[in-house]
Amino acid sequence: TFTSYQLEELEKVFQKTHYPDVYAREQLAMRTDLTEARVQVWFQNRRA
């Protein structure tokens, strides 16, 4: 599960791009204290 802060950050990036590159995902992962893999999976699920 994600915190409301994490979801907010993820959604913010999703609004800009549905396909963030690895750099964007790593920045987001650091900001949200998630792994890059978790961020990647979240985007895959969000796009589905």
Rank of each mutant, 00 (worst) to 15 (best):
T1D: 11
T1V: 11
T1E: 14
T1N: 12
T1H: 12
F2H: 03
F2W: 08
F2M: 09
F2C: 04
F2T: 02
F2A: 02
T3K: 06
T3E: 06
S4W: 11
S4E: 12
S4D: 11
S4Y: 09
S4T: 13
Y5W: 12
Y5C: 07
Y5N: 09
Q6I: 04
Q6F: 14
Q6E: 03
L7H: 07
L7K: 05
L7F: 04
L7Q: 07
L7R: 06
E8Y: 10
E8T: 09
E8W: 08
E8G: 08
E8C: 14
E8V: 09
E8P: 13
E8F: 09
E9F: 05
E9N: 03
E9Q: 09
E9K: 03
E9D: 02
E9R: 03
L10Q: 00
L10W: 00
L10K: 15
L10N: 00
E11S: 03
E11V: 11
E11N: 06
E11G: 02
E11D: 04
E11F: 04
K12V: 06
K12S: 08
K12H: 11
V13W: 07
V13G: 04
V13C: 07
F14Q: 01
F14G: 00
Q15D: 07
Q15T: 07
K16T: 12
K16H: 09
T17P: 00
T17Q: 08
T17E: 09
T17W: 07
T17N: 13
H18S: 09
H18Y: 05
H18R: 14
Y19H: 08
Y19E: 05
P20L: 06
P20K: 06
P20T: 01
P20Y: 04
P20Q: 02
D21N: 10
D21S: 11
D21K: 04
D21M: 03
V22F: 14
V22C: 11
V22P: 09
Y23I: 11
Y23R: 13
Y23N: 14
A24H: 07
A24W: 07
A24M: 15
R25N: 03
R25A: 05
R25P: 02
R25W: 04
R25F: 08
E26K: 14
E26M: 14
E26H: 12
Q27W: 10
Q27M: 11
Q27T: 08
Q27S: 09
Q27E: 14
L28T: 02
L28W: 00
L28E: 00
A29G: 07
A29P: 01
A29D: 15
A29S: 07
M30Q: 10
M30C: 08
M30T: 08
M30Y: 13
M30H: 11
M30L: 13
M30D: 07
R31S: 06
R31Y: 05
R31T: 09
T32V: 12
T32M: 09
T32W: 14
D33C: 14
D33W: 07
D33G: 15
D33L: 10
L34C: 04
L34K: 01
L34Y: 01
L34T: 05
T35Q: 04
T35D: 10
T35G: 04
E36Y: 06
E36H: 07
A37L: 14
A37S: 09
A37P: 07
A37N: 08
A37M: 10
A37G: 09
A37Q: 12
A37H: 11
R38V: 15
R38H: 09
R38L: 15
V39E: 00
V39L: 08
V39P: 00
V39K: 01
Q40A: 14
Q40I: 09
V41T: 13
V41E: 15
W42V: 15
W42F: 03
W42A: 00
F43E: 00
F43P: 02
F43W: 01
F43G: 00
Q44V: 10
Q44Y: 10
Q44G: 05
Q44R: 08
Q44N: 09
N45K: 12
N45E: 13
R46T: 03
R46F: 02
R46K: 09
R47L: 07
R47P: 02
A48S: 09
A48P: 04
A48D: 10
A48C: 12
